[in-house]
Design a protein around this nucleic acid. Structure first.
Lengths: 118, 118
DNA sequence: CCGTATCCCCTCCGATACTG
DNA sequence: CAGTATCGGAGGGGATACGG
């Protein structure tokens, strides 16, 4: 709870980018997934960005890329032990949000403009 | 672990922005902090951005803003119960990073350019 | 099938200057 | 002291088109 430099910030900025969480979530749910399969699971993402996110996540050691040199080529992505460990934390974050959303809703309606997305 | 709409994504995009975490961390450490005090604690942030982040965090119910109409005016920010609850999760995230950093370091040196910041 | 190359928009962020 | 107004640059993200 003190220094730890700022590695948290680094990973945070990657995970904070659009679609990162969606990707992890889908890999979590579906196990091993191919590139275009991911595109179908996340219809709004473009191949450009999907490719970027996958590269970043791979470089952070959060996903594994396996290439099968068949014809046509097949590429599969999956979570690493590291990111499976992360899943717990994300789950807690999710719980935290649900918990405090309920709170808020009761206390004050609050005028959030268009915070909802997707 | 399924739908929950995408509230996680919403808060994620806010927390993923630059300085958000620094601000929460400083409020966590120092309790109640004034605007310019925060600027001193986070020397690289501009007042423009600090102001933005504070507003976003307040709207998300993560910080409390208290205004004292003195002369000169005094404004104090502090964490809410909600964000104190969040602290735990952030701490776990921090632990997770440390844990797996150590792992990586042993297995493969890996050429991370300049991952350290701040 | 699995991406990269380009282009373009748009938001974020920082610097500076200015008000109550 | 605690911000807002404005502007400019940098980088993220999407659409399209193309290549291995």
């Amino acid at each position: 709870m003190k220094g730890e430099k700022c590695d948290v910030v680094d990973i945070w900025q990657i995970l904070g980018k659009r679609w990162s969480l969606h990707i992890l979530k889908n890999l979590s749910t579906n196990g091993t997934v191919r590139f275009n399969e991911l595109r179908r699971l996340i219809p709004e993402i473009s191949s450009t960005v999907l490719s970027q996110r996958l590269l970043e996540l791979e470089q952070e050691g959060l996903i594994t890329k396996r290439i099968y040199s068949e014809i046509p080529i097949r590429v599969e992505y999956s979570l690493t032990p590291r990111s499976k460990d992360l899943e717990n934390i994300l789950q807690q974050l999710s719980n935290w949000i649900v918990k405090w959303n309920a709170h808020e809703k009761k206390k004050e309606p609050k005028t959030f403009p268009q915070m909802s997305k997707s």
